[in-house]
Design a protein around this nucleic acid. Structure first.
Length: 383
RNA sequence: GGGUAGGUGGUGGAGUGGUCUAUCACAUCUGACUGUAAAUCAGACGACUUCGGUCUUCGGGGGUUCGAAUCCCUCCCUACCCA
């Protein structure tokens, strides 16, 4: 019983393998490709919903693990869902907490362990124990009331042994089966009609080994999910984009399903994934790096496009550098964001220097606007 | 005029005979950041360097000592108290 809803996703082939699509969700239709900033704890740090809408943000990602800890999924359920809680009425996707198996547990074994039962976390907030089973992850995501949810997965570091990576694929598949079973059960318990159900994404594991990725895709697609996400990490330990691995994965996914590159990525990574046929993305880069004073700017005004694939269409500047002390130009003259419309580089640098929270907000807004403009370019170029 | 306490690298402030170019913090400079333990983290921060070192620093000057930021003399300066 494959998940399939008529008119949920449609697309037309664009340049090469890239495609332009439309994904229907309970909070509106999203044009693909699209990029979602991470509002991990139901907040894109430092910016308001209005800031995000003005910047061109169309959808957000929240996190099951972090919201489970604070303020708690039942709390969010009781306040009628994360949309109402945040005051954001556009699409929201929740990540399953699977990434925290990697970012917390694998990077620091003191913070928990992953077993066949699920992920046992030692809370990063107060040390308390929390077990996130596949079933629990799905239940929480229903409590959150999101539009798109993700199966709990078991990502491993890319330098893990082949056996380890293979185990991660098979366990992620078993988790996916359990997630799907619980998903159906929740739909039934909550009396949710097919037309109103959130979309469920399976996650492709396999590390940097293309054959494992193919195997993962084959298993998941045979089982059937609304969409498929590329999990784990899409870069090697040196930050090099795993072009062939992404390609191996995307080729096995039926074109009728949306393809989600989890945690992707830099502007260049997004372009390359889009050209391979990936449709949706999320990443902390624009927001985190913005808060750290790194601003994205186009290399050329008017934005050509010939150089998109080479990745030299943009540059970054560290606004805190001394060279901007007397720089009275805009971060980017051609940008229409709140920062570029009103303030100089020198002023933004000053705001960072004095530690004013406004610096974080303005830098984040600019980077979100940059990403939105990148997506707009991809959409227009491919027609 | 008398007394007391002090003067350490951009700042604050440790050190009180050798392991001191001198802890630490801040400031400054630079870098990193990819499904957010991240308004975080890392490196540099006297000069020169063939990167192995070399030279110059702890208010100024002089002295004791094999050796001084550390002890002594002297001068200068600062803060507070008393006249």
């Amino acid at each position: 019983m494959s998940l399939f809803r008529k008119n949920m996703f449609s697309y037309k082939q664009a340049k090469g393998k890239a495609r332009l699509g439309a994904l229907r969700t309970n909070h509106g239709t999203l044009q693909t490709p699209f990029f979602m900033p991470d509002a991990t704890r139901a907040s894109v740090r430092g910016v308001s919903g209005t800031d995000m809408q003005t910047s061109g943000v169309e959808a957000l990602v929240v996190n099951t693990y972090h919201l489970m800890l604070q303020p708690g999924s039942s709390y969010i359920r009781d306040v009628l869902g994360v949309h109402a809680f945040m005051g954001w009425d556009r699409p929201i996707l929740s990540d399953s907490g699977g990434y925290q198996v990697y970012s917390l547990i694998h990077k620091n074994p003191d913070l928990g362990r992953i077993t066949e039962k699920g992920a046992e976390f030692r809370s990063v907030l107060d040390g308390s124990k929390h077990t996130l089973t596949p079933e629990r992850a799905i239940e929480i995501q229903f409590d959150l009331g999101v539009d798109m949810m993700v199966c709990l997965d078991d990502p491993r570091p890319n330098d893990a042994s082949e056996k380890d990576l293979s185990d991660a694929v098979s366990r992620t598949f078993r988790f996916a089966e359990r997630c799907r079973k619980e998903y159906d059960r929740q739909l039934s318990i909550r009396g949710i009609e097919d037309e109103d159900r959130p979309l469920l994404f399976g996650v492709i594991q396999g590390g940097p080994i293309a054959d494992l990725r193919k195997e993962a895709v084959a298993g998941l697609t045979a089982f059937g999910f609304d969409g498929y996400g590329f999990g784990g990490r899409h870069i090697d330990s040196d930050g090099v984009f795993l072009e062939e691995v992404l390609k191996a994965a995307v080729e096995g996914i039926p074109p009728s399903a949306p393809r989600f590159g989890l945690g992707i990525g830099t502007p260049h990574d997004i372009v390359r994934c889009f050209e391979q046929g990936w449709d949706m993305f999320d990443c902390v880069i624009p927001t985190r790096e913005g808060r750290h004073g790194r601003l994205f700017v186009w290399n050329h005004e008017g934005v050509g496009g010939e150089n998109l694939a080479e990745g030299n269409f943009y540059a970054t500047l560290n606004i805190q550098n001394e060279r901007y002390k007397n720089d009275m130009t805009r971060v980017e003259e051609a940008c229409d964001c709140t920062l570029c419309a009103n303030h100089t580089r020198a002023y933004l640098r000053h705001l960072f220097r004095i530690g004013d929270p406004l610096a974080l907000r303005l830098a984040t807004i600019h980077n979100l606007r940059f990403y939105a403009r990148l997506i707009a370019v991809l959409r227009s170029m491919s027609e």
